[in-house]
């Protein structure tokens, strides 16, 4: 019986130790609350990260009130609106996020709202060499 009982505990522990996926929208809800509520603006990239050669994850956050869907498009996903859909913080909420791995380099990007409205990041450098005629921004990821 003792052996059986210990086995039960081991099985319970193994079961409970499995990773649990929490809705990533928690991130946006936290940031919304910290910021004192939704603000209809988009802000830009942070200070350049330290130089490294490895690919690193970057989180893109945009506030797009009344949007039904938002996609992050850029050089890193061939400007394909289907590849990086952003997640809303909550149903109907204004804050959308996406995490993208980026290796060192320069990337142009934009947010595509409801499949037709292009939104650049007003706080980020504008991409002056954008050949598509729609607003876009630039982020530079430091490299060695």
């Amino acid at each position: 019986m003792f052996e059986h009982s210990e086995n039960v505990i081991e099985r319970i522990v193994a079961h409970l130790r499995r990773p649990v996926q929490i809705d990533p929208a928690v991130d946006s809800r936290v940031m919304e609350e910290i910021a004192g509520g939704p603000t209809p603006r988009v802000s830009g990239p942070h200070e350049a990260p330290p130089a490294e050669t490895a690919t690193r994850a970057f989180q893109f956050v945009v506030v797009a009130p009344r949007a039904a869907r938002v996609a992050l498009v850029g050089d890193f996903n061939d400007w394909d609106a289907a590849r990086t859909p952003m997640r809303p913080s909550q149903r109907g909420g204004p804050v959308w996020t996406a995490v993208v791995p980026l290796s060192p380099g320069r990337y142009r990007y934009a947010f595509l709202v409801d499949g037709s409205r292009w939104l650049a990041d007003p706080a980020a450098p504008a991409a002056r060499d954008d050949e598509f005629g729609t607003p876009s921004s630039v982020v530079t990821v430091g490299g060695s």
Partner: peptide, 13 residues
């Protein structure tokens, strides 16, 4: 309060 959404490197310590 600083409002800085946008892009964040998530690999720093």
């Amino acid at each position: 309060m600083a409002q800085s959404l946008g892009i964040h490197h998530v690999g720093a310590s």
